[in-house]
Design a protein around this nucleic acid. Structure first.
Length: 624
DNA sequence: TGGCTGTACTG
DNA sequence: CAGTAC
DNA sequence: GCCA
DNA sequence: GCATG
DNA sequence: CATGC
């Protein structure tokens, strides 16, 4: 990456690779062969020098290389071409990695696992040592130290850490190569019982799609008045789909809504009665809790797709994650069981790939792709690490690259930021859900303290609590005061409140608080009640009364609901954020900043719905 | 082929 | 800015 | 992964 | 040092 | 944090 390459480019060091101290000579004994084999490109030259600083030698002879460092623009086949026909004569073939590899090693001052997916060159097949070679002697160590690599060269152990054979290339575009022998997921799972013409008939069904959509929407609208008792929680998997559907309808309705509705009504009779559908809804709420949720006919499918979704989330395949979420949302709205690919394919947000997976799930009750994913031994560690406050995907991946697998490993070796330290030390507490009653109680403590400082200030508990959840992951407090127009007017109050609560030993940690002037408007930290010494996450959000409506929407969620609203806004050339709804958002001449746009509404929650053309929903109707 | 919500805080 | 959280 |  | 990204 | 004034 350009950024990384430039990083080492401190003034005047470009051509004079200073040598690092002994203990930083992580590459000692290693020799790197670069592809392309030159240091003409400044960026590559920089990387080469940098590697030298850390003890690597630069070789231009493949036979003496321990690693082949390939430019990311190049394809694996470019590397393959240069491979010696007659092999390496029993010598360990060099490992092929991308330019990121040395950089990561340097960053961590350690030799990280070179076989990670992130270091695969474009088009490079996964290493298959695990399954193909039954080599118990070296099960691909997570961390192989330089010395090891060096001394290892004698034994013929290596075999094929580097499969030259162009095994079945992953055809098509898989940005993320499956960990191992993943079924080529291109639908050749061989389990398609029905759906004769699989890839052929998208066109034929397209018209139906919108029809279906309308159906869901009308269905939703029937229920919106019913007394749903939502007790869902947000991290489980919220699905605010309905909002999605609603929104879709809305922006479609702008142009062709007449025909839409006409079609909708003429379409086949709605498969479900109101009563049944209601049941569905109700079930949906509890669906997340029990796996025995026979409630929704697609419960099993949803369950599995959600796992798949979780996996992609962990792996940081952001866009695929989004696609799965949408699909799950749509599925949750179905009152009929979707059993075939074709049936699934007609639904919005479900394309061929997902449709195939859905059919696979229905017919085999599992998803091979998922099983492969879950087999990955690092996945468990990933899940564990990601639950540490302040640890995201990057950090977790890095830790795993160092071979760490447990919290204990991390505790011993990792350098933690203050936030992460809190996250570690109170890992269990902070990952324990907070019963609604306790949220109420903790909220009262804060309110009481607040009233003593300024009786006019209002505190509203937002988040899943406001949506009626029976338990929450954290406590979200909106701090506002009648007559206020800007955050600044509340900042003084908040700092007094925080001080007081810290004195009271109610607040026990700060994770992220606004320090500077400007827009500092949020405070993240931990608190614990008097009777229950469990640390809880608590957030304060400063909101001038003038922005209360927009803030409520934001802080009530759920997140998918919010995204839908914002997406809709942007499609209507408006912009929604926690401060308000704006319109006529335009780009500056030089693609510069967005012209703020004109504030349309921010004070009144309902008005924002109205202007966006979204039917009003009570907080507890912004459900999953 | 590009977009997928939009922002605040840390280091 | 990258990374993280919401 | 999906969609416009 | 302090601002900026 | 890294960079730049």
């Amino acid at each position: 990456m350009a950024t990384k390459a430039t990083r080492g480019n401190k003034r005047g060091r470009i051509s004079a690779p200073s040598v690092r101290p002994e203990d930083e000579q992580i590459f000692k004994g290693l020799s790197f062969f670069y592809v392309p084999d030159n240091d003409i490109a400044p960026a590559r030259r920089l990387r080469i020098n940098r590697a030298k600083e850390f003890g690597a030698s630069w070789t231009r002879d493949l036979m003496t290389a321990t690693h082949v460092v390939v430019d990311k623009k190049l394809e694996y086949k470019d590397v393959e071409k240069m491979w010696p026909k007659d092999g390496f004569g029993g010598r360990t073939p060099p490992k092929v990695v991308t330019e990121d590899y040395p950089l990561d090693c340097i960053q961590f001052r350690a030799i990280v696992d070179a076989s990670q997916r992130k270091y695969l060159v474009n088009g490079q097949p996964e290493v298959e040592e695990k399954e193909q070679e039954k080599e118990p002697e070296l099960p691909t160590p997570a961390v192989d130290f330089g010395a090891q690599a060096k001394s290892k060269s004698k034994s013929k152990s290596a075999v094929s850490s580097l499969p030259l054979k162009p095994q079945h290339h992953n055809k098509g575009k898989w940005d993320y190569v499956p960990r191992k022998g993943t079924p080529s997921q291109n639908g050749d799972t061989g389990i398609q019982t029905h759906s004769p013409s699989k890839g052929s008939d998208k066109a034929g069904h397209t018209p139906l799609l919108q029809d279906e959509l309308s159906e869901y929407i009308s269905m939703m609208q029937e229920f919106k008045d019913l007394p749903l008792d939502v007790d869902e929680e947000e991290d489980a998997q919220s699905t605010a789909n309905e909002s999605d559907a609603q929104l879709d309808l809305d922006h479609r309705s702008g142009s062709e809504n007449e025909s839409q509705r006409a079609r909708r009504s003429s379409r086949r009779a709605r498969p479900t009665s109101k009563a049944i559908a209601f049941e569905d809804r109700f079930a949906c709420n509890r669906a997340g809790k029990k796996d025995a949720n026979q409630d929704n006919p697609n419960a099993r499918t949803i369950e599995i797709l959600q796992k798949m979704n979780g996996y992609y989330e962990r792996i940081n395949d952001h866009w695929r994650t989004i696609a799965y979420r949408k699909a799950i949302s749509i599925l949750k709205q179905q009152s009929v069981k979707i059993t075939t690919e074709e049936e699934a394919y007609r639904l919005p947000s479900i394309g061929r790939r997902l449709a195939q997976k859905i059919e696979e799930i229905v017919t085999t009750d599992k998803l091979q792709r998922l099983e492969c994913a879950e087999e990955d031994p690092t996945d468990h560690a990933l899940q564990t690490f990601l639950k540490i406050y302040g640890v995201g995907n990057k950090i977790a991946e890095q830790w795993i690259a160092q071979g760490w697998r447990t919290l204990e490993d991390v505790k011993q070796h990792a350098k933690l930021t203050p936030s992460q330290r809190v996250g570690m030390e109170h890992y269990d507490d902070l990952n324990t859900r907070i019963p609604r009653m306790e949220v109420t109680a903790l909220g009262d403590i804060v309110k009481k303290a607040a009233a003593e400082i300024d009786a006019a200030v209002q505190l509203i508990i937002g988040g899943s609590y406001r949506r009626g959840a029976e338990s929450s992951h954290d406590i979200d407090l909106i701090v506002t005061k009648p007559g206020t127009e800007s955050v600044a007017e509340l900042r003084a109050f908040l700092s007094r409140l925080i001080d007081q609560l810290e004195r009271d030993k109610f607040l026990v940690a700060r994770l992220a608080s606004s320090h500077a002037g400007g827009d500092g408007s949020k405070w993240h930290g931990c608190c614990n009640g008097e009777y229950r010494p469990i640390w809880r996450r608590i957030d304060f959000l400063l909101v001038p009364e003038a922005e209360l409506g927009a803030a409520l929407i934001y802080f009530t969620g759920n997140d998918i609901f919010n995204r839908s609203m914002r997406l809709l806004a942007s499609k209507k050339r408006m912009r929604l954020n926690q401060r308000g709804l704006y319109r006529d958002v335009l780009r500056g001449p030089n693609r510069a900043k967005i012209t703020e746009g004109e504030l349309v509404e921010s004070r009144d929650e309902k008005r924002i719905f109205e202007i966006l053309g979204v039917k009003w929903r009570e907080p507890w109707e912004r459900w999953c």
